[in-house]
């Protein structure tokens, strides 16, 4: 399953890649923000997006809204993994169509569970 991991911190991208590897997902594309991958999304068959919120150039919420507004991208499961833990942020992401919202800090098990749920929902 080709997965896109978007986070401006390389440590977090590495951590998420390690978690993905543990559940058998090794085909991973990385980016520091959504703007970097807008062209890539049109060319590559991305099947899962895991994205941070606060990033330079394009925030995760802007990236989420762009994806959900695009007929070719809206069905890709989109998981937000972010330090933004306030209710207002969570509600905004839900209203914008996020498929799951994980607050940092997280355990690998929590992220794995969220990814598995998002994949199952996408298959329905």
């Amino acid at each position: 399953m080709k997965t896109l991991v978007v986070d401006d911190f390389s440590t977090m991208r590495k951590l998420i890649k390690n978690v993905l590897k543990q559940i058998g997902i090794s085909d991973v594309v990385e980016a520091e923000n959504g703007k970097q991958v807008l062209d890539l999304l049109k060319k590559e068959q991305i099947e899962l997006i895991v994205s941070d919120w606060i990033m330079p150039e394009m925030t995760g919420i802007e990236f989420l809204k762009l994806c959900k507004a695009d007929d070719n991208l809206k069905k890709i499961p989109f998981i937000m993994v972010t330090a933004e833990a306030q209710k207002g942020n969570i509600m905004e992401a839900i209203k914008s169509g996020v498929d799951n919202y994980i607050v940092k800090p997280f355990t690998p098990e929590k992220l794995q569970e969220a990814i598995n749920k998002a994949i199952q929902r996408a298959k329905m």
Binding site: F9, S10, A83
Partner: peptide, 23 residues
């Protein structure tokens, strides 16, 4: 640079959790 990056992310996470508690 990787260590520096990780400290930035940890600071980010502690800040996020603090703001959740302040809420």
């Amino acid at each position: 640079s990787e260590i520096v990056d990780s400290i930035g992310e940890l600071t980010n996470i502690i800040s996020g959790q603090s703001r959740k508690e302040f809420e």
